[in-house]
Structures are given as C-alpha cells and as structure tokens.
C-alpha cells in the first residue's frame, strides 16, 4: 500500500514497468476469473505469465493493455495509474494471439498504422516501418498483403508492428501458439534476441512451461485466478512454493511426508541393481520397472514398489540403462539432500 502511494506522485521515469495491486475480475454472474492479483514487473524484463487455460493469465494481460476494466484493484504503468484509461491512452503495444493484422492493408501500412494515427510524416513512417520489418527479416515483402504470408511471417509482422511504436511495454498473448514446433523454437530465440536488443519490457503469456523456462527472466505461475509464485526459472524449478508449481514446472515426484509433501525431481534419482545398500545420506526405494520410455538422450522409467501404490518416475541418461526392461527388479536411489520439502 505504501508503495502505491509513493508511485502515484513519482514521475513517469520511475517505478516498475508494471505494478498491479488487488486486481479482481469476473464476467457476468460467473466464477471470478481473477481473485486478487498483486504483481510487480521490472523495466526491461522478459516476464512470463504462466498457467493452464482459465487460470487468469490472459485476463491479467488484457487488464494491463486496457482491453478490460478490473472490478477492483489498480494498474500502474511506469509509476502512473492507468486503471481507467482505454488502450489508446496507454504506452503499450500488444501482439495478439491471432496476430490481428489488417487484411486490407500492406505489411508496410500495417506496421506504420500507429505512426499514421500519431501524425508522423509519410517519409518517416516509411523509413521506420522498413527498419522494423528489417528487424524481423521481412523488409523485401513490405508491399504484400497479410493473406499472402505464411503463419510464421504474419507473426513476425505482428511483432514488427508492436516494436515500431517503441512502447515501454509489449504484451504478447501466446504469440507462438499457432506455429509448428521447429518454427516455434526459432521464434523463441528471435523474440528473446529482439527483447534484449531493444530493452523493451516484454510481458509474455503462455501455458507452455518449457517455453517459459527457456525465455523468461522471471515467471509468475497462475492457478485459478491467483498467482502461486513469482520467481526466476531456476527458483521456480528448484524451490517451488507449492505442489501445484512443482507439478506444473518440470516433472516431479511428490509424496506425502508427515504434515506436508516432499518433492523429488526425476533426474535426481538413479537406478542401481536390486539389493543395493545405500551409503550414508542416501535413500533407496526397491521396486520393479513398470514403464520404460526412450526419449533419445534420456530414458524415463516408472518404478513401482512391491508394497505401495506409489510410483517413482526416474529420468536417467540413456547410456546408463541399456538393457533395462519392464518387470526388472531395481533399486531407485537418491541423495537425501535432493529431497525438497514443499512449503505448508
């Protein structure tokens, strides 16, 4: 609350890129979509809103962009309160999930649209639009219409259109969702490169945890209208704040232990022969191989115990487990230090 007060009086050059406090939102008489979102996104961060569909991440993005108004709470951009302002009064540009390119305009005109609205001269518009198109390697086809482009190209135009206005903040709503895997990987690298190069704050919405881990400076994990945890990819993976975060990010073994749960990542477990005697600081789970999935560099095995319903997922380098098969008796072994007690 105190932070809020100091920020309203500060100039636009101070304060975090985005500051959200107490945001709630529900549609009609239905369930609330957001149940109180507090979030601070720093300048020049690549920040990801991650969560399953319906968790409120896209609604949060739309509230930042001004496409929806919150039921309660406030939105600050660069220290300025913008909660009631419409999208055209905010220094933010959005890359839409369906790209939202104007079908009756050339790529040039699409990219230059914002500048035209702001009364930039035709010569400057053309030059800056060409530069932005060059940034996404489409400078040669600026006179084409969106319908003549592939999905990947359209996506790049949408990015150029958001970049050209040099906003302090770009919102990206699952922009890679419609692309195939290979193109997706390329664009992930490209997006990250452009973000670093321009220093513009990116707020990125995705449900793909792998994408979030590889691109983000920090991530907010959403679940059912609340933020479960905010942190760097490493912090979320190694110190998840809840079983939900542990399950959503990476694969995990979660077992009840006393009052709470404990987490054991599959890659922290190794397989030894049946009857292995654990060393000090080691724990062992004797069982049988129930499933083997060869994934190339690594192999994933599911180990089931003889007297328990619990299974343990183990991921080991494929070289180490040649000749392993279903039904084989093994010992799953891990170091006690790799057991992480989940909070609460």
């Amino acid at each position: 609350m105190e932070l809020t007060k100091t920020m309203t009086v500060s100039s636009s050059q101070t304060g975090p890129a985005v500051f959200l406090t107490g945001l709630t939102k529900s549609y009609g008489h239905g369930k609330p979509v957001l149940k109180g979102i507090d979030l601070e996104i720093r300048r020049s961060e690549f920040f990801t809103l991650l969560g399953p569909s319906g968790s409120g991440k896209t609604t949060t993005l739309r509230l930042i962009g001004g496409f929806e108004l919150p039921d309660a709470g406030e939105v600050f951009l660069n220290g300025k309160k913008v909660t009631p302002l419409p999208p055209y009064r905010r220094d933010v540009n959005t890359m839409f999930q369906d790209y939202a390119l104007f079908p009756h305009m050339s790529l040039q005109d699409n990219v230059a649209y914002g500048m035209k609205i702001r009364g930039v001269s035709a010569a400057e518009r053309h030059e800056r639009a060409q530069q932005a198109l060059a940034m996404v390697h489409l400078e040669a086809v600026g006179d084409r219409r969106p319908a003549q482009l592939s999905g990947g190209q359209r996506q790049r135009v949408a990015l150029a259109r958001a970049l050209v206005n040099e906003p302090s903040l770009i919102l990206l709503d699952e922009p890679l969702g419609a692309l195939d895997l290979k193109l997706r990987r390329e664009m992930q690298v490209e997006l990250k490169r452009i973000q670093k190069q321009t220093g513009i704050t990116f707020v990125y919405v995705t449900h793909d945890q792998e994408e979030a881990l590889s691109m983000s400076d920090r991530i907010a994990v959403f679940s059912e209208g609340v933020i479960e945890q905010v942190g760097t990819p490493q912090a979320l993976y190694e110190h998840p704040a809840s079983a939900f975060v542990a399950r959503f990010i990476g694969s995990s073994n979660i077992f009840p232990d006393g009052d709470g749960d404990i987490l054991l990542r599959p890659e922290d477990v190794r397989l030894e022969a049946e009857g292995y005697v654990p060393a000090a600081e080691e724990q062992v789970f004797p069982g049988f191989i129930q499933e083997v999935s060869y994934l190339g560099p690594v192999t994933r095995c599911v180990v089931g115990g003889p007297e328990t319903e619990h299974t343990l997922t183990v991921v080991v380098p494929s070289r180490g487990v040649r000749g392993i098969g279903e039904g084989m008796a093994v010992s799953a072994v891990w170091s006690s230090s790799s057991v992480y007690p989940l909070p609460r």
């Binding site: 962009g65 496409f67 419409p86 999208p87 055209y88 933010v92 540009n93 959005t94 839409f96 939202a100 390119l101 104007f102 649209y113 914002g114 609205i117 702001r118 259109r161 206005n165």
Partner: peptide, 8 residues
C-alpha cells in the same frame, strides 16, 4: 482492439 492498441 489492435487499432486502439496502437492509439486509434
């Protein structure tokens, strides 16, 4: 929405 996003 995109048009308004760009200031229209």
């Amino acid at each position: 929405e995109a048009a308004q996003d760009m200031g229209a």
